[in-house]
Write a protein that binds this DNA or RNA. Structure first.
Lengths: 154, 154
DNA sequence: CTGAAAGATGAAGTTGACTTCAAGTCAAGG
DNA sequence: CCTTGACTTGAAGTCAACTTCATCTTTCAG
């Protein structure tokens, strides 16, 4: 690998959209790695960009960094991961997304039956008792990611 | 209001599903209130239950407590809120849910085109660039609520 | 009247995913 | 060689929404 091909933190940050501090954090968690210059600075191979794209994608799907780490462990150790490797990794996301979508649809349908009646009954209202899915996480489970909150007015 | 109608924290906690500590927290934030006995203990009117149902519902839709507080401010000051008041408050949620659902659908469709190609391109992939909606919150916006994470394996 | 259960308080802890800070070091164009 | 911007580190801070803790007080059935 030609040294000219190696990327600095700043370059990786710009290209991936992750802050340098996030890259260092991911490195501490073992999600990515880098070689070092004699002076101790990080130098990344371009392959880290695809790895970061995977991390970003997984986060968007809703995986925690712990889960991302576990997923990345499943990559082949000996060789450079192929497209098929990445695709295999992301195949399970489809089911996950379907589950999320159906949860929100149920919530919306409940809301439709609720608006106008204004019931919000502790026992009957579909919104205040947001389905079995939420119950898995105890009462009051939030259905929305932070990124989608605070968008509109009530 | 007959004193016999007043509820203790424990009773409200049991009926609403919120922990007593959460009720105290909500009170500090001004979301709910209670009268006090001469000894300093909280006594709630039954109206707090509907208010808590609203809070639970709003949280399930994805509102932050700040937003819930702002919404509750909009309730009529002079009189007991009617069903119509509550319904008006929750009407904006429909749009919000629709937005959330379409965001997830876009993500899923992107995933379908992505699985098998394994691209995860930083520029092209719909999953690693999860749509304009996520871009509002900068790169890496998470689409999933905590409650739905960590559900499956990748 | 009494004792156990329930309630009160402020401060500190929790979780996840980072960011910020302070103080110092490295890399490289001119 | 020098300067300036980029990089290094560990520790501490942030945010949201609560929970937990330690210690003390109140309530009320019997």
């Amino acid at each position: 690998m030609d040294t000219a091909d190696l990327l600095t933190v700043g370059a990786v940050a710009r290209r991936s959209g992750f802050a340098p501090s996030a890259l260092r954090y991911y490195e501490r968690l073992g999600l990515i790695s880098a070689t070092r210059t004699t002076g101790g600075q990080r130098r990344y191979t371009r392959s880290v960009l695809r790895r970061l794209a995977f991390i970003r994608a997984a986060r968007n799907i809703g995986l925690s960094l712990d889960e991302v780490a576990a997923a990345l462990e499943a990559l082949p150790q000996g060789r450079t991961p192929t497209k098929a490797d990445w695709a295999r990794l992301s195949r399970g996301w489809r089911q996950r997304l379907d589950d999320q979508i159906s949860g929100l649809l149920a919530l919306r349908d409940g809301l439709d039956s609720c608006i106008g009646c204004g019931c919000l009954s502790l026992r009957r209202c579909a919104i205040s008792n947001a389905g079995d899915r939420a119950a898995l996480d105890g009462p009051g489970a939030a259905f929305l990611p932070r990124s989608l909150r605070r968008v509109g007015e009530v």
